[in-house]
């Protein structure tokens, strides 16, 4: 019954707003729906479907629930170390470099990458695109304000990733808020992009899509991976989250393993 009602809810959302959550992994989605149901004091999911159909503001709440806003700087430092010591050698052979952070949430990973590229001398020739469908997250990301008490942990990650100075070199602190320097921000474009309906918008040398696919079922994973493949230049790089892999995907044959543990893939030469 609950399963049926959620299927109906997702159909209603697709019909009314064009957001297609029908191919999201269901267990995690179901949990968020039930949480919202309780907070809104609704009697059942069918009542929630009705409210979503007739109240766009309530749908916005649902959208916010569904978007993942958890992220951190230099998450899995060994991945950034590999980028720094190995992938950058390839990026340096291009006169212009485009990088895409898919599902960037509040932007921590994009700033991490800007810092890394700055230290490797690549930033001035790079454009970093960081996209999400949650406008609220994008607003926070564009501002570049973060809580200062998170910085010691982030600095530790940064140093483990091969950071060459100190994270504090890149931001100004006021009270418990830090703000990243404009010298980083001017290379990052934060923009709304919805993987469920939007298309490729630029040719990328490197795409980060970490811990995005875990929320999708096999069908949506495949269509997203196809989109990412289409967005990559010849021999471009794709980085997935540490529990994600291409192994069971239809796109597997187009990619070679560049670094196994780091989940770095590269488009094959003979495509």
């Amino acid at each position: 019954m609950q399963h049926f009602e959620i299927t109906q809810l997702l159909e209603a959302i697709y019909f009314r707003y064009g957001y297609d959550f029908r191919h999201y992994a269901r267990a995690s989605l179901e949990r968020k729906v039930i949480n919202r149901l309780r907070l809104a004091k609704l009697v059942n999911i069918s009542a929630m479907t009705c409210k979503i159909l007739y109240e766009p503001s309530f749908f916005n709440l649902f959208l916010k629930d569904m978007s993942v806003t958890v992220t951190e700087m230099f998450r899995d430092p060994y991945v950034f170390k590999k980028i720094r010591t190995s992938v950058c050698q390839h990026l340096k052979t291009y006169s212009r470099v485009n990088i895409w952070h898919v599902g960037c949430a509040t932007g921590e990973e994009a700033y991490s990458m800007a810092i890394l590229l700055d230290e490797e001398g690549l930033l001035p020739r790079t454009r970093i695109y960081a996209t999400d469908y949650n406008n609220h997250s994008l607003e926070l990301a564009t501002r570049g304000n973060y809580k200062a008490d998170k910085m010691p942990q982030y600095n530790e990650n940064y140093l483990k990733s091969g950071g060459k100075s100190s994270l504090s070199h890149y931001y100004q602190q006021q009270g418990n808020i830090i703000n990243f320097d404009d010298s980083l921000k001017k290379y990052i474009t934060f923009a709304n992009h919805n993987l469920m309906k939007d298309q490729v918008f630029a040719q990328m040398h490197l795409v980060f899509c970490r811990n995005v696919l875990i929320y999708f079922d096999a069908t949506l994973q495949n269509s997203v991976l196809n989109l990412l493949k289409e967005s990559l230049i010849h021999r471009g790089f794709l980085i997935l989250g540490d529990k994600e892999s291409l192994d069971f995907s239809q796109q597997r044959e187009y990619f070679e393993n560049y670094a196994n543990k780091e989940r770095i893939y590269r488009l094959c030469a003979n495509l």
């Binding site: 269901r26 267990a27 995690s28 993942v68 875990i214 929320y215």
Partner: peptide
């Protein structure tokens, strides 16, 4: 999941 497979989240 209902089909008795695993999924992960970082919520």
């Amino acid at each position: 999941e209902r089909d008795k497979t695993f999924s992960l989240s970082i919520d």
